[in-house]
Nucleic acid binder design. Structure first.
Lengths: 224, 224
DNA sequence: CTCCTGTATTTTGTATACATTGTATGACGT
DNA sequence: ACGTCATACAATGTATACAAAATACAGGAG
């Protein structure tokens, strides 16, 4: 915990947002571990700002599910049990299915081309052996679908759900033997969207998320 | 807008939570109208607290989707277009279906008895001609199902989605001609759960939410 | 009359000071 | 030795002061 969090001041944003992003990143990357206390004074000193933006950032983390606060005792990084993970994945599966069904109806030709690009980018990224890149490409693929679904609230929710399991997802993507499956599933989803075949894409997406679920759950179990 | 918001200080809660609840109520009840600015100094003066808890409450409202803030310009009550409403209802429908399916597998005998009570309470409340009571009874019915689904994250999400359309829901429940349909649907869902017949309950729930959707959308159109 | 500009005012952003509560430590009595 | 209470310290809760930005408006130039 002694590593120094540093603010990315480039953006011209209120400090609360900069702090929020910084803390979120730190939590998702595992630099701030589940259960670790988030003490205002300490964070303020570390990040070189006052307590006010820290407090507001914590309120935001709280509602994102990344932190929990007990009144008069302060905040700590949210813990995630296997049950929590299952619960999140269940919701994600359902909403991902909805998203891809909606996309089936609404996706435009241009968005299909972008999606095709995302599929290709993902394939290429897996050859780079750079997990960070793979994760980014995967996010891009799913984002393209979310955007096509044309439901901003749904997109928000799904991004949030994804975020909540980011820590485990990165571990998951380190398993290179899973890449061929992932690539095949992406292709299947893409092609289903081209044919606008709802049943196919829905089934493919459910399978896709389910595969993640199995691997992520194994991973959690191994961690203990 | 000149009505005086007053804090319910009874509870032993941080002021930010009291303020948050107060503002949320005010927004949901329509006392604070969509688009209305939420000025910190003004709210602080009105509620008799300082700006700090107001600011933190606004950050919380923001992530609940009840307020939107533009940096350096401040916050305002979130507006909801018909499209927004459709988007929310689409998500709600999907998640309500998931919840009731999960409940089908997991509901206990005791929870079934509670649900039966909720069905009966709802029927009785419709005879009282007290919209507030009817709304409460409806919430209780759905909450019983959410609890049975045994997925706290899902329950949170659904409560939040419900909240986002509370304003319109209350209007919706003023239409007494809809009561018999609602009662019948509740019964259908309850009986499906007793028989643990997933297909039936899922279909019934989808129909139930869809009916709401139609009425609420008509309502919005009329408002213009 | 319109548009620009500069200033005054309002409002948010940030920092800090003070108050209150939670927690740990240690003395004291049993 | 154990428990209880008092006190000290640390962290959060709240209020206020100051800074910076956005807005409104008035006055002047074209």
């Amino acid at each position: 915990m002694t590593e120094k969090l540093t603010l990315n001041m480039n953006a011209y944003l209120p400090l609360r947002d900069v702090v929020f992003n910084t803390l979120r990143e730190a939590i998702l990357k595992g630099e701030l571990k589940p259960g670790e206390r988030l003490m205002e004074l300490q964070l303020a000193a570390r990040l070189g700002v006052s307590r006010t933006p820290i407090r507001e950032a914590i309120r935001m983390l709280e509602l994102e599910g990344l932190a929990v606060t007990v009144p008069r005792k302060g905040a700590q990084v949210a813990k995630m049990t296997e049950k929590d993970m299952e619960d999140v994945l269940q919701i994600r599966q359902t909403l991902d299915e909805l998203a891809v069904k909606l996309a089936c109806d609404k996706i435009t030709e241009q968005q299909l081309r972008l999606l095709k690009g995302a599929v290709r980018d993902f394939e290429e990224s897996t050859r780079s052996r750079d997990v960070k890149k793979v994760a980014q490409a995967d996010v891009a693929f799913h984002d393209a679908i979310y955007r096509a679904a044309d439901n901003p609230k749904l997109m928000n929710l799904l991004n949030n759900l994804r975020e909540q399991m980011y820590r485990y997802r990165v571990e998951y993507l380190k398993d290179e033997t899973a890449y061929p499956t992932l690539i095949a599933e992406h292709r299947e989803i893409y092609e289903g969207l081209v044919r606008r075949d709802k049943e196919t894409v829905a089934a493919a997406m459910v399978k896709h998320v389910m595969n993640q679920e199995i691997v992520v759950k194994n991973m959690i179990r191994e961690q203990e």
